[in-house]
């Protein structure tokens, strides 16, 4: 930093000028970083988007073996009224066979009702399996056609590139046939 032509310089070593230079450059860098933040943060979800949506879902019309898809925060939520077979399949799996181990009891506290966000945890497609005519994959649950992820009857990832199970949102039973999705 200290040049020979610098009249205030001493030969080599750090000078007061160097210190001032580094200090002001450092301060400038910090200031610029701070000034950039509002712009970056402006790209985050706006307040109206953040205002959490809460929805209620009436379960009474969903017969055993049927499933419906509802929209919550712009995302599909799969609500499935599982058959005894499906429950048994989900509960008989040993944890060691799972890529993202999670007992079915935890995912579906009331075994006949499975509620989960219907988004493939790989890259966000909506897996098939809601309609009776849909492919259900090798584990009789859901199949994501985008890159071939197979989910079981508990919505757990069994095969394919998705890393984790489909997400179970926060929800509560208001009564036996109504759930509320989202936090109060």
């Amino acid at each position: 930093m200290s040049q020979a032509a610098n009249p205030a310089g001493n030969d080599g070593g750090t000078t007061r000028r160097d210190f001032l230079l580094y200090a002001s450059a450092g301060l400038g860098a910090v200031g610029t970083a701070l000034a950039v933040w509002p712009f970056l943060d402006s790209m985050n979800p706006a307040k109206d988007v953040m205002a959490l949506a809460v929805i209620e879902v009436d379960l009474s019309p969903i017969a055993v073996g049927q499933a419906i898809t509802v929209t919550w925060r712009g995302k599909p939520v799969f609500v499935r009224h599982r058959t005894q077979d499906e429950i048994d399949q989900a509960r008989s799996v040993s944890m060691s066979a799972l890529k993202d181990p999670q007992p079915d009891e935890e995912r579906a506290p009331r075994p006949e009702w499975l509620v989960q966000i219907g988004i493939c945890t790989h890259l966000g497609c909506i897996p098939k399996g809601q309609k009776p005519s849909d492919p259900k994959g090798d584990y009789n649950g859901w199949f994501c056609v985008c890159h071939g992820s197979h989910y079981d009857t508990s919505g757990r990832i069994r095969k394919g590139p998705a890393p984790t199970n489909m997400v179970v949102p926060q929800y509560a039973f208001l009564d036996d046939t109504t759930i509320q999705i989202g936090e109060e």
């Binding site: 985050n44 979800p45 712009g74 995302k75 890259l123 966000g124």
Partner: peptide
Amino acid sequence: TVITSLVTPIPWVGEDLAIWLWGGFG
């Protein structure tokens, strides 16, 4: 959806980064 989700596997910040890219939850 698929391409913006490419950032989600980035450890720690992936999910927040995706939300930042979307300006929403999708």
